[in-house]
Write a protein that binds this DNA or RNA. Structure first.
Length: 470
DNA sequence: CTATGGCACGGATT
DNA sequence: AATCCGTGCCATAG
């Protein structure tokens, strides 16, 4: 297809426009939805040459088209066997999906996006438990939650505003904390973690060190300064990692976010956080072989284009404004083109990924195939760094409702780790690392004993002698 | 003596 | 060029 040439970003070019084009496409590619949203809003506010129009309908198939892209239906419908996923770009819908991660057993049928917003959703759960006096206060609190489900407004303020005591506020908050995104209404990530931990503790035994790590070493924890954390708690770094894994697996500092990964940080300001997914993957059809539906989320509703009226007016610009207008026009034009290209790249990427990792998407971690960015870049005929940029810091929601970073599609050892986990779960008597390695080798995974130990610790599984059997 | 964790090296990936 | 990952070797705990 003709676009392929546009995708080979590594081709040297001497035209200045092309370099600007290149630079902008790359930076746009790196952005996830949140960042893109901010960027677009900024551009729209500052550049009169840009306009946001209603989403268009495709002239031939009359489907809605989004995201400054050609019609998805027409360009992709040729590949409609179940092997090739349908890919399309869709506008950001206001769905809040209240799946609190943790339970594995969410099947595609269970998963239907809920159209409620967070306050409504939470209120629906506890509405009946509240006394008439508590009700308006709760509503007030809920509407003051930030996008992460945290309550940044000081308690005192609420108490004063409603002329009630702080203990009253506390009482309501503690009820709130137990609602579905467990920990909603906590004052900060730290409190959210503690609340979740407390509730979890009621149903299972929890290492008191986890409490200590969160309450005393939270700053180190959030900065990923594990060595200093280990020192201040006077435990081994190994132990810290076990704790960390536990936290990552079971707790969520931002209750309304579905995912918090321990991912490398992109900026000094802290770990990359996943807000809403940038891509949805869902199933179309319920059979054995459902077709995959890949949805690239476009952060704004509407399509961005260069305002034709502005373009017309260019010729009649007042002389003193001429330069300004021209540059606005150029910039707008560039942005629109780059956006289209960014989206095109992401679409191609996700299409390929969905195809390659189909089993992983449908059947879970065990079927993940080791895949490197390099290999994919070869197939897509783009530069490696293009893939890296497109993948970095973005997240995707799978048909089972889990939100994972896209980089998980490139995990080299995910499948072995899951097989290993299964072995350990099914063991009758605790198996030593050596033994596990032997079993894995028998099953065809060539792996060293030392590596088993590494995987174990990655998964937060205790060594054999500390494991008791079930 | 056996099972694991720590450190560090080299090759692959990004 | 920087980082990640699998491994081997050695120290330590049990």
């Amino acid at each position: 297809m003709s676009q392929q040439t546009h995708l080979t970003y590594h081709k040297p070019s001497h035209r200045p426009l092309a370099t600007a084009h290149l630079a902008q496409t790359m930076s746009l590619l790196e952005m996830n939805n949140q960042e893109l949203l901010e960027k677009l809003e900024g551009e729209l506010a500052n550049n009169p040459a840009l306009e946001l129009i209603e989403d268009q309908h495709c002239p031939t198939c009359n489907r809605k088209i989004y995201g400054n892209l050609p019609c998805p239906q027409c360009s992709f419908s040729s590949s409609s066997n179940f092997d090739s996923p349908i890919v399309y770009v869709s506008s950001q819908h206001e769905t809040y999906t209240p799946k609190y991660r943790g339970s594995d057993a969410i099947t595609p049928e269970d998963f239907s996006p809920t159209i409620e917003d967070l306050p409504t959703y939470v209120l629906g759960q506890i509405g009946s438990e509240l006394t008439p006096e508590e009700r308006p206060i709760t509503a007030y609190i809920l509407t003051h939650l930030d996008e992460d489900g945290l309550l940044r407004t000081p308690k005192v303020e609420i108490a004063l505003y409603h002329h009630i005591s702080i203990s009253m506020v506390d009482k309501i908050l503690s009820k709130l904390h137990r609602c579905d995104p467990i920990g909603v209404g906590a004052q900060n990530p730290q409190e959210a973690l503690l609340v979740q931990l407390k509730i979890l503790n009621e149903s299972q035994e929890i290492d008191p060190l986890v409490f200590k790590a969160i309450s005393e070493g939270f700053t180190e924890l959030s900065k990923h300064h594990y060595k200093s954390l280990a020192k201040s708690l006077n435990i081994s770094i190994k132990k810290v990692k076990v704790i960390l894994k536990f936290i990552n697996n079971n707790l969520n500092p931002y209750p309304a976010r579905t995912y918090w990964g321990d991912v490398r940080h992109r900026t000094e300001s802290g770990p990359v956080r996943y807000h809403n997914p940038d891509v949805y993957i869902s199933c179309y059809g319920n059979g054995e072989e459902p077709q995959l539906l890949v949805e690239i989320i476009w952060p704004i509703s509407g399509t961005l284009r260069v305002n034709p009226a502005f373009q017309k007016a260019l010729g009649q610009a007042p002389p003193e404004k001429n330069d300004q207008w021209n540059s606005d026009y150029q910039k707008a034009n560039l942005l629109v083109k780059c956006l289209g290209q960014r989206n095109h790249t992401i679409v191609q990427l996700m299409l390929k990924l969905a195809k390659k990792q189909r089993k992983f998407i449908l059947k879970g971690d065990k079927h993940s195939k080791p895949l490197t960015r390099a290999k994919l870049s070869e197939e897509l005929e783009v530069h490696e760094s293009t893939i890296s940029r497109a993948v970095a810091g973005k997240s995707v929601q799978l048909p089972n409702g889990k939100i994972i970073p896209i980089s998980k599609f490139f995990d080299r050892s995910l499948h072995i780790r899951t097989v290993m986990k299964e072995i350990i779960e099914n063991e009758t008597t605790p198996l030593s690392d050596t033994r596990i390695a032997e079993i894995l080798i028998e099953e065809g995974y060539n792996i060293a004993r030392r590596t088993v130990a590494k995987y174990r610790s990655m998964e937060g599984i205790l060594p054999a002698h500390l494991r008791k059997n079930s």
